[in-house]
Design a protein around this nucleic acid. Sequence first.
DNA 1: ATAAGTTTTCAAATTATACTGAAAGTTCGA
DNA 2: TCGAACTTTCAGTATAATTTGAAAACTTAT
Lengths: 168, 168
Amino acid sequence: MKLTEAKQQFISSWGAFGTHWGINRTMAQIHALLMVSPDPLTQDDVMAQLDVSRGNVNMNMRDLISWGLVDRVILSGERKEYFTAEKDIWKVATQIIQERKKRELEPMLKLLAHLENIEGDKKDKEVKQFVDTIAGIRKFGKQADQMLSVMVKADESWFLAGLLKIFK
Amino acid sequence: MKLTEAKQQFISSWGAFGTHWGINRTMAQIHALLMVSPDPLTQDDVMAQLDVSRGNVNMNMRDLISWGLVDRVILSGERKEYFTAEKDIWKVATQIIQERKKRELEPMLKLLAHLENIEGDKKDKEVKQFVDTIAGIRKFGKQADQMLSVMVKADESWFLAGLLKIFK
DNA sequence: ATAAGTTTTCAAATTATACTGAAAGTTCGA
DNA sequence: TCGAACTTTCAGTATAATTTGAAAACTTAT
């Protein structure tokens, strides 16, 4: 297979993959493109390679930057802005975990804590099931939250060595 | 807070949460409703409580069943079908992991393996960056896949005990 | 100060996704 | 075998998400 074709296939699959995880296609595709590009690209480069509009590239690039997955780069002597993506996949993963934790998991845990305090007789099975379910999810979520915190701070090799200890 | 209100808030938030993870709102809401309902519900119950159409409930219920999160229940003497959700959150989580692994992670790994075999000079930095990126993602994905396999088979308490060993 | 180069914004258009509801299909008891 | 009870399907409709493109807002260099 030729590089161009492989690249195209990777970008397109990464985009489709993203849509299954709540990430819009173009954003995932820009990320994929930057990950396989050795040098920083301009907005025009991305527009040309993915065949999308300037506004679209601009907005999604901003989002990617807010997720900490892409950086603006100024090349000396150049007027244009360039963009580059983190290529260490462990760093990419921990960055995404950190952001989703902050944006989604933590607010959810806050809500669940709130919902546990309902009036009503615990003898009523409707009440009991509700409280038990909420409590169960919250406990699980808190454990996940802690585990992910450690993971985010961890070094990849240390983390993998640790997993081996459990799983062998 | 009253039970009815808390329930409503949980269902609505669970739906919004789902949409951030590629799950449609109604499907997530049906799941939430069944998780907090002590007894099995009929399609009509769900239609009434979530105010959605029969077709919508039917299709999403089928999906939930295919994800292994909801079961059909036949109550003796009753003509109608009833539905009930797994309420042990560890089981829910491992079930989701198992399905997403099968539906998304494994096909992606297969594609990546395929994409690593490209023609071209490894001295070309475009080629090198592509191969390195793909290889990096694939390696990471394989490790995640293995780890999740163990997790899916594991018992919750065993798993948590193991994590403690790493993280303390 | 100004103009060319560049980035950002956002209303409108487009596309993708989800939902409805009625008809068709199925099941089961009499 | 019939028909009432119930479930499934899917074309059409509605909603939500994404994308465009052109105008506005910047940002230098001179």
